[in-house]
Lab assay of single mutants.
Amino acid sequence: SAVVMEEGSPGEVPVLVEPPGLEDVEAALGMDRRTDAYSRSSSVSSQEEKSLHAEELVGRGIPIERVVSSEGGRPSVDLSFQPSQPLSKSSSSPELQTLQDILGDPGDKADVGRLSPEVKARSQSGTLDGESAAWSASGEDSRGQPEGPLPSSSPRSPSGLRPRGYTISDSAPSRRGKRVERDALKSRATASNAEKVPGINPSFVFLQLYHSPFFGDESNKPILLPNESQSFERSVQLLDQIPSYDTHKIAVLYVGEGQSNSELAILSNEHGSYRYTEFLTGLGRLIELKDCQPDKVYLGGLDVCGEDGQFTYCWHDDIMQAVFHIATLMPTKDVDKHRCDKKRHLGNDFVSIVYNDSGEDFKLGTIKGQFNFVHVIVTPLDYECNLVSLQCRKDMEGLVDTSVAKIVSDRNLPFVARQMALHANMASQVHHSRSNPTDIYPSKWIARLRHIKRLRQRICEEAAYSNPSLPLVHPPSHSKAPAQTPAEPTPGYEVGQRKRLISSVEDFTEFV
């Protein structure tokens, strides 16, 4: 048969007729292969192709491409040299491709048809291009793949890379869960390890502090508590009631339409708007009261037996805890006409967050109470924005700035309102402590230090009264110190430094 060459192609190359033996071998191979691939376009007849790359030819070592076609129900084999250009295909004639002069020997084609199974398996396991790669995943090629499931790999992101949580363990979102698992493993320790309690022994800490320079003076030496005195035992138990972190309780009120001037209507609300609910979820963490331990979680007086509701929101960081007394989460009882059960919590909070959804101005004093010092007013606006402002009593104007209003988005509203309420509550605590000038409020841990110092002074006084020969370590507060001759004046800087060093040991009130 003659071949018409394309323009620009090399000279004529004689194409030899395939021997009958080659056709029989390739026909047997075509019957084993699956003929249901995917359909081509209507211009080209339905056909199945599979590209198999052999590394070497037997005796020649030339890479070839073998295409199996099922045109007219008769499979045909096409061998081509890759750099050459194939002729145009037609549905009426068999596929013809040019070969190099080196394939002119018909014996070479017979060798190609009689490829060993080793070469076929190696060509099938190679990388296939384009559409033949999808075909190689079918059941027909499963014989050339190794048996057994593939090893499982770690989760992959859409980009093909490992997620960040699997790369950096410290930033993994499941870090707290692993800590819980470690605690569970520790709890399952053997009885021999049960006595080993991690941490620092208080006796060891005391020993280090006792021999430090801070205890060089007799006034700073630790003293032993009497065991037989019940009054001192009660004082030590009272110390446990003062937490070592700051605590805040903040009221949250929802004002519906037409309720801006009605205290009873505001306290009777059992739910609010959708934006109000989203605002609550951002204030803190939802907790169930019956599962809380009052000595570990500050509840601000809420009952854990269901008297004040089942849930509330709280927030904490390293040095403070805040609980929100939310009116809509507290039960509304029919027998309580004046809502006294709610007001006994909300009316005693220094700061209230008022979500004013009424469309009218909310005035300070609508919720009557002796300790309502500051109101954080949240007014929802259009386009997911809110107006946040402050209202306070006249005696609080020096501590709280009420002249600045803020426009905040719904997303950042819980954070801004919480921070403003916490700052206002700190100012309210300082303002409330002014009624007792001898006990200015600095912080909870300073209050613990003052309680310890008062307890020490009482013990020293009782020891001096029981044994008059012992001198008083600290003179009583009601006694007057003996007159001392004025010492020589020293520079102001040295006096300030000495006073600062003494105050650092005794108390921190002056620095606050």
Rank of each mutant, 00 (worst) to 15 (best):
S273N: 03
S504P: 15
P475E: 14
I266K: 03
T490Q: 11
T312N: 05
A463E: 14
E288H: 10
I502M: 14
G284K: 06
G369S: 11
L381M: 10
F371S: 14
H271F: 15
T277N: 14
T509K: 10
G258L: 03
C340M: 15
V374A: 10
T366L: 05
A447W: 11
L225S: 13
P437V: 06
K480C: 12
D246C: 06
G309E: 10
W445V: 06
S244P: 10
I459H: 12
L501D: 15
V378A: 03
K343S: 13
D291M: 14
S389D: 05
S466H: 12
R450S: 12
G301C: 06
Y276L: 01
Q321W: 14
S260D: 04
I440V: 12
L224H: 10
A447C: 11
M420V: 05
N227F: 07
P491E: 15
A417Y: 00
E384D: 08
Q457R: 08
R344N: 07
N425G: 14
T332I: 10
S352A: 13
S244M: 07
E461Q: 10
D295T: 11
R275W: 00
Q497I: 09
K221I: 15
L253P: 00
Q259K: 02
Y355L: 00
M396Q: 03
E384L: 03
R458Y: 14
D246I: 05
S477V: 15
D334T: 14
L399E: 07
T312S: 08
N356I: 00
E360Y: 05
Y313T: 05
H316D: 15
P471K: 10
Q497H: 10
T402S: 09
Q484A: 12
G369N: 09
L390T: 07
A487M: 14
K249F: 15
D410C: 00
I459N: 08
K363Y: 09
I377L: 08
P489A: 14
A265Q: 09
E510Q: 12
R498S: 14
N348T: 15
N227R: 09
L470V: 14
L264H: 13
N269V: 01
I326Q: 04
L390G: 02
N386F: 02
P243V: 06
P486H: 12
F371L: 15
N269Q: 02
V304F: 14
V297G: 12
K394M: 07
R234V: 06
L387A: 06
S403D: 09
A463G: 10
D410M: 00
V297P: 15
D317Y: 01
E233M: 09
G398E: 06
V297Y: 15
Y313W: 05
F232N: 08
L329G: 04
G282S: 03
G492V: 08
K444I: 10
A251C: 05
D295K: 07
K444Q: 08
A464C: 11
D334H: 14
N412S: 06
C392D: 01
